[in-house]
Deep mutational scan, measured.
Amino acid sequence: MKVMIRKTATGHSAYVAKKDLEELIVEMENPALWGGKVTLANGWQLELPAMAADTPLPITVEARKL
């Protein structure tokens, strides 16, 4: 699914347009965010693609819901 990742004042957030859902990312498998699992505030887990740590945000990526 397409997910937009952006930086907020409190960390990172994910927006899933198909579900009209925006949630804070509360847990990251990798400190650089990319190439691992993230957990959203509502409990969803997404697998993000591997990208460079300095990838500019906001960005829309293809993520997989676990």
Rank of each mutant, 00 (worst) to 15 (best):
L33H: 03
G36V: 04
G35C: 04
N42S: 08
V26Q: 03
L24M: 14
I5R: 00
E27V: 08
E47P: 00
S13N: 06
E29H: 03
M4F: 07
I25F: 05
N30I: 06
M1S: 04
A63I: 09
G35E: 03
M28W: 13
I5L: 05
E22D: 11
P58T: 05
V16R: 00
A32C: 09
L33I: 08
I59C: 09
K19L: 15
I5M: 00
T55V: 07
N42F: 04
K37V: 12
P58E: 01
D20W: 07
P56H: 08
L40K: 00
L48E: 01
T8N: 10
K37F: 10
E47A: 10
A14G: 07
G36N: 03
M1L: 13
R6V: 10
T10P: 03
A32N: 14
W44C: 11
L21G: 06
T8D: 08
D54C: 06
T60D: 06
A63M: 06
K2S: 12
P56K: 12
G36Y: 05
I5S: 00
K2R: 12
E62A: 10
S13W: 14
D20L: 08
I5K: 00
L46D: 02
S13A: 12
K7I: 09
T10L: 14
T10K: 13
E47I: 14
N42E: 04
A50L: 12
M4G: 04
P31N: 10
A52E: 13
T39F: 07
L21I: 14
E29P: 00
G35A: 05
L57A: 01
D20C: 12
I25L: 06
I25Q: 01
L24Q: 13
P49K: 02
N30K: 11
T60Y: 10
Y15R: 09
L57V: 05
A32I: 11
S13Q: 08
N30V: 07
V3L: 07
D20I: 07
R64E: 09
K65I: 15
E22W: 14
H12R: 07
A50K: 11
A17V: 14
T60L: 11
I25W: 00
W34E: 02
V38R: 00
R64Y: 13
A50E: 13
Y15M: 09
A41Y: 05
A32W: 15
T8Q: 07
N42W: 04
K7V: 08
W44V: 05
A41G: 10
I59H: 08
M51W: 05
I5H: 01
V16S: 06
M4I: 14
M1C: 14
L33N: 03
N42Y: 03
M1D: 03
A41M: 09
V26A: 04
G43P: 00
A53H: 12
E22V: 09
I5C: 04
E29K: 04
V26D: 03
P49A: 02
A50F: 13
L48I: 05
E62R: 11
A14I: 15
L48C: 01
M4W: 07
T60W: 15
N42L: 01
T39D: 00
L48N: 01
E47S: 10
R6T: 11
A53L: 10
T39M: 09
M4L: 13
R6D: 07
I5A: 00
R6S: 14
G36F: 03
S13F: 14
Q45Y: 08
A52Y: 06
Q45S: 08
K19D: 15
L21C: 14
E22N: 09
L33C: 07
A9M: 10
A9T: 12
T10F: 13
A53E: 14
Y15S: 09
G11S: 05
V38K: 00
M28E: 03
R6I: 11
T39R: 10
G36I: 03
A50D: 12
W34M: 01
E47T: 09
T60P: 03
L46V: 05
A41H: 07
G35R: 02
P58D: 03
E22G: 06
V61K: 01
M51Q: 04
K2F: 13
A52H: 10
A41Q: 09
A32K: 12
S13T: 13
L33Q: 03
D20R: 11
I59N: 04
I5E: 01
T55M: 06
D54I: 06
E47H: 09
K7F: 08
L24G: 08
L57R: 01
T60R: 04
V16W: 15
R6M: 11
K19S: 15
M1V: 14
L57K: 02
A63R: 00
D54H: 08
I59L: 10
W44K: 00
E22F: 09
G11F: 04
W34Q: 01
R6K: 14
M1K: 02
L46Q: 00
E47C: 13
V3G: 00
A52C: 08
V16H: 05
W44Y: 06
P58I: 06
G43Y: 04
K18A: 15
A53F: 10
P49D: 02
R64H: 11
L21M: 13
I25H: 01
M4E: 15
A17T: 11
E27M: 11
E27P: 00
E23P: 01
E22Q: 08
L48A: 03
K19A: 15
M28D: 00
G35V: 02
L40N: 00
V26P: 02
Q45F: 08
V16E: 04
M51A: 03
V26Y: 06
I25K: 02
K65C: 15
E23D: 06
T60C: 11
R6A: 10
G36L: 06
N30F: 13
A41T: 07
E62C: 14
K19E: 15
G36M: 04
L40P: 00
I59K: 09
A52N: 10
A32D: 14
M51L: 12
N42K: 00
L48P: 00
L21D: 03
T8C: 08
G11N: 03
G11L: 05
A14R: 01
L24W: 08
V61S: 04
E23V: 15
E47D: 08
L40E: 00
G11D: 00
E23K: 05
E27G: 10
V16I: 15
V26L: 08
L21N: 07
T8Y: 08
A52K: 09
A9N: 10
G35K: 02
W44A: 01
H12C: 07
R64I: 14
L33P: 03
V38C: 03
A9G: 11
M28A: 12
G43M: 03
M51F: 06
V26E: 07
M28H: 11
M51H: 02
Y15Q: 09
A14C: 11
L66Y: 12
L21H: 10
P56F: 07
I25V: 07
M1P: 02
V26M: 07
A52G: 09
W34Y: 01
P49G: 04
R64S: 09
K19W: 15
H12A: 05
Q45P: 02
G36S: 05
T39G: 01
A17R: 09
L40W: 04
I25P: 00
K2L: 15
L57M: 08
P31M: 09
P31E: 13
K37N: 08
L40V: 02
